[in-house]
């Protein structure tokens, strides 16, 4: 034991990182990782742009009035929302891959706090969500078709982006619930269904009564109405607000519940 004094660690010099280990290096690497996934970028950024080019420029209705702008602008907002929720869902669902790979366990051997980890996931998802919104809006500007006052471009763009956080929670919840590498294949399919039911692809008033009734309870219905409200000038319905609040509670609560279980694992 003669070596003891020389090898005694200096415990006083050791500190716990601030913000639970959250830092910009990690955020940068996470974003780079997400963008490296070609499939995600293709579906979340390119696909909504293509959809806009197909549906948003049709001369039969593109220039028709949609409140404070035209139908082309209305469709552009819908496509940006579709891209943004795909992006944030993908970002959240990355936890499934990380848990399957044992990365979450590895992170428990570092000072990174579980809360900081979730914040990093959410922010990463938001960065990709922003890329989706910007891609659709920039293409919209280039085509000269969508028309609405400048402030509405900003207001609707921000609404879509911030609203897509709801689906970052959805992605997290599902990522914890379905720990597998191909979770996004299931979730992309679910999002297409939600998008139809939310009225993102086809206006709901063109659908049957039963479909319209069911649609009101699906997760993109309320958000879709809220992000279009500044353009249409319509009053926001109570059912849309209730829809968003209830789904936020379900997704965020579900993610929190699974997350607690995961970190308390014995």
């Amino acid at each position: 034991m003669s070596t003891l004094s020389s090898s005694t660690p200096d415990l006083s010099g050791r500190r716990v990182p601030r913000f639970g280990g959250f830092n910009l290096t990690v955020l940068r690497l996470e974003v780079r990782r997400l963008l490296r996934n070609k499939r995600t970028v293709l579906f979340a950024v390119l696909l909504p742009v293509v959809f806009f080019l197909i549906f948003g420029l049709n001369p039969q209705y593109a220039d028709q009035n949609a409140g404070n702008g035209n139908v082309s602008a209305f469709i552009m907002i819908s496509m940006a929302l579709y891209g943004a929720v795909l992006a944030t869902t993908s970002g959240g669902a990355m936890v499934a891959i990380e848990r399957a790979a044992g990365w979450s366990r590895q992170l428990r051997l570092t000072p990174l706090s579980p809360a900081a980890y979730i914040v990093i996931k959410m922010l990463t998802a938001l960065v990709l969500g922003l890329a989706s919104v910007l891609a659709v809006y920039v293409v919209g500007i280039i085509t000269h078709k969508p028309s609405m006052p400048v402030y509405l471009w900003i207001v609707t763009g921000l609404s879509v982006w911030i609203g897509s956080l709801l689906f970052a929670a959805f992605g997290l919840f599902m990522g914890y619930l379905l720990p597998s590498e191909n979770v996004m294949q299931i979730l992309s399919f679910a999002l297409v269904l939600f998008a139809f039911a939310g009225g993102l692809f086809i206006p709901l008033d063109q659908m049957g009564d039963l479909f319209q009734t069911i649609a009101r309870f699906t997760p993109l219905y309320g958000l879709n109405e809220l992000v279009h409200a500044p353009l249409t000038g319509d009053a926001i319905s109570v059912s849309a607000v209730v829809n968003v609040v209830v789904w936020l509670v379900v997704f965020a609560g579900g993610a929190m519940w699974r997350f607690r279980r995961d970190t308390a694992r014995v």
Partner: peptide, 30 residues
């Protein structure tokens, strides 16, 4: 104060070797 080398897993396939090390290093004060 403590770190560990586990048997398997614990790595992300879509990060490079250098990025994985940067990621880990950024989490520690010292």
């Amino acid at each position: 104060l403590v770190s560990a080398v586990m048997q398997t897993g614990g790595l992300l396939k879509d990060l490079t070797v250098g990025e994985t090390a940067q990621y880990t290093a950024s989490l520690f004060v010292q």
